[in-house]
């Protein structure tokens, strides 16, 4: 057994496609994920993965490429949640839950139909948990285009999105339509989830959306550095996951190798746990402390009485 790279890793076509699509979709998930976490919309993000499952399994049944179904389902789901009232914080969980329930029921139907009527086995496995080594290289341009479009939209609405994520009142005061911005973001989130569904499966795409973002938000003190760190973590995790999955087929020659999704989710989870360790937090806290050290200047002691004639 080789130390790290088993033979053929660098020359295998499916591995190239997997690394390319995996990295691009991980990057999109990470950037969108940072906003998902600061907007406290993780639950909505998770609901979108369920709607993506419905779309993906439906597309499979009708013989369309699952990517279209994943994204189409997610976008429809985003619209539905907006209609049911995801924008109002109080009805947010309710709206999300209603859409999630309905979508999962439909997904159950489609997955049943997929497995009973299609000759292909493993439809369920492929849709729920991904099939990164069997991706058709011809999907690369579509994935790249959708990823670029999503990142472009996020960059376009960056400032209004940021302000309305921090406070809808302050955004409203500047004439920002927080609801429109929120809807645009939900659609971007749907596309991000759809993209990572083809890599690690629709059910697990929440892991890439939330995991790297949540970890990096713990470790950084500004939004820009959070986005950079989340991107690096997500891409690195995905590549390492692909490598380990490829290697795993050599660990036990009788097996097919373990699924990529398992490794990606495991690394993401361990990373999150690690970032929460007291040692790590203290180190980061000290760096943040430097930034905030100037706080010691007591505002109250400033002579402010001038002017109150």
């Amino acid at each position: 057994m080789h130390l790290l790279f088993e033979p053929g890793f660098f020359t295998s076509g499916p591995v190239h496609t997997a690394v390319l699509i995996g990295s691009v979709t991980a990057l999109v998930s990470a950037i969108v994920g940072v906003f998902t976490v600061i907007r406290s919309q993780s639950f909505a993000g998770h609901a979108l993965t369920d709607v993506a499952t419905t779309g993906g399994s439906g597309a499979f049944y009708f013989g369309i490429t699952p990517l279209v179904g994943f994204i189409g389902g997610g976008v429809v789901g985003a619209g539905a949640m907006d209609l049911v009232g995801v924008q109002r914080v109080r009805s947010r969980d309710l709206a999300t839950g209603i859409v999630l329930g309905a979508a999962t029921g439909l997904a159950a139907l489609f997955l049943y139909l997929d497995t009973t009527t299609s000759a292909t086995t493993g439809a369920t496995q492929q849709i729920l948990f991904g099939s990164i080594f069997t991706l058709d290289p011809s999907t690369v341009p579509l994935v790249a285009a959708l990823s670029a479009l999503t990142l472009f939209v996020i960059a376009l609405v960056y400032r209004p999105l940021l302000l309305s994520s921090v406070s809808t009142e302050l955004a409203g005061a500047r004439g920002i339509n927080a609801r429109a911005v929120g809807l645009i973001f939900m659609v971007a989130m749907a596309v991000a989830v759809g993209l990572s569904s083809i890599a690690i499966g629709s059910i697990l795409s929440t892991a890439l959306l939330i995991g790297p973002a949540a970890t990096s938000l713990r470790l950084t003190s500004s939004l820009r550095s959070s986005m950079v760190l989340a991107s690096v973590l997500a891409v690195a995790t995905t590549c390492v996951g692909i490598l380990l999955a490829y290697d795993s087929s050599y660990w036990d020659p009788s097996s097919q190798g373990l699924p990529v999704s398992f490794f990606i989710v495991a690394i993401t989870f361990l990373g999150y746990l690690f970032s929460g360790l007291p040692v790590v937090r203290r180190r980061v806290g000290r760096r943040r402390g430097d930034l905030e050290g100037a706080r010691a200047v007591d505002v109250g002691s400033r002579p402010m009485s001038e002017g109150t004639a």
Partner: peptide, 11 residues
Amino acid sequence: LGLDGQRFGWG
């Protein structure tokens, strides 16, 4: 963001 929070783009 008080300067330009309503503007499009990264800024």
